[in-house]
Amino acid sequence: MSPLTPSPDLRPYIDELERFADGQMTPEEQEAFELRLEQEDALAEAHATYEQLTADLRWAAGHNTLRQRLQSLDERMNERGDALARAQSLAKARQRRVALLSSLGAVVLVIAAAAAWYFTRPSPARPDRNWEAYYQPDPGPAVTTGLLHTRPLLSEALDQYQAGHYPAALHSLGRVSPTSVGADTLLYLRGLILLRQGQGNAAQLYLRRVGEQDSSSELARRARYHLGMAYWQARELTQARAELGTVAADSLNPYRASARQAIAAGVLQAE
């Protein structure tokens, strides 16, 4: 049909055309309508125009539906892209948090390790301030067969002292006569036993009296060393340092090396 040709008037036939197109006619009506299409030019033109119009409408409807579908797909793609971008952003944020936590964990471990090392490290070696760490004990005279026969009480006291039975040794020593042994020897042994018993103050009373008659005797030199240790045991460090200093300066004193070691260690300085 030419665009310049006037469109046929569909209004007289619209009901029949719609029923025919929709398949609502009975077989007899449909057969009669088809016969009329062959015989009536106006009806045939109206039918052709109706078919073209409905085809155009279907195309327009389909095009609009396609446009809507494409628009919906585009929106879904945009939403998917946004969701993917958010997921990637969250993943990066988690990675940053994990990296930060890992760094913090490493820092905490380093700090914990440093703290553990600091609190468990061996402290710098400090000299032992205990007098027993520097004390060189005197076992006293050996208990021989001859001593047992000549001085049985002294032998008994020495045997008990050397066995560590200090109260019994003091008791036995109290039964020994000074005339049979010597006053300085009894004073010296009594001072030794009290010192070993932990009675530094009492030991001083006896050790100071040794050598009152002869301060240059070997027994007096020995007593001076043990007197210094008795002062140290009693925490009288000034007197201990003075006595042990004298011993350290005496080349004839058998305890010189022990005294010099204590003096050199500086452990007799007041705390």
Rank of each mutant, 00 (worst) to 15 (best):
Q88W: 10
Q88V: 10
R80A: 08
H226M: 09
V210R: 00
D138G: 03
H47N: 14
V247W: 02
T150M: 11
A21P: 00
T5W: 03
P6Y: 07
R175D: 06
Y161G: 01
R221Q: 08
H63I: 01
V181S: 00
P141A: 13
T5F: 04
S72A: 13
D138A: 07
A230E: 12
S7L: 13
G191M: 01
S215E: 03
S215N: 09
W117N: 06
H226K: 04
G182S: 08
Q239P: 10
R126L: 15
A163L: 05
M229I: 13
D250V: 07
P141V: 09
Q199I: 04
Q213F: 02
Y188T: 04
L37H: 13
V176H: 07
Q39R: 15
D159C: 00
T5Y: 06
H165A: 12
P12I: 08
L170K: 04
A264W: 00
L170G: 01
G191E: 02
Y166L: 10
P167A: 05
N130S: 15
A168P: 02
R129C: 00
L268P: 03
G182L: 04
S251R: 14
V107P: 02
P3L: 14
D138M: 10
F33W: 15
A112C: 13
V176F: 00
S251I: 11
D214Q: 10
G266A: 05
T49M: 12
A157K: 05
Q95D: 12
G191P: 01
Y188R: 07
L43R: 03
T54D: 00
F33Y: 15
L4Q: 08
A125F: 11
Q160L: 12
D214F: 00
I14N: 01
L192R: 10
G266C: 06
D56I: 09
R221H: 03
T49W: 10
N64D: 09
Q30V: 08
P139E: 06
S216P: 00
D159Y: 06
V108K: 00
Q199H: 13
Q213V: 08
E45M: 11
G211F: 04
L158A: 04
Q71R: 13
G140Y: 08
Y206T: 01
T49R: 11
E271I: 07
S89A: 14
S7H: 10
G62Y: 06
T145G: 15
A157W: 07
F20Q: 05
A99D: 07
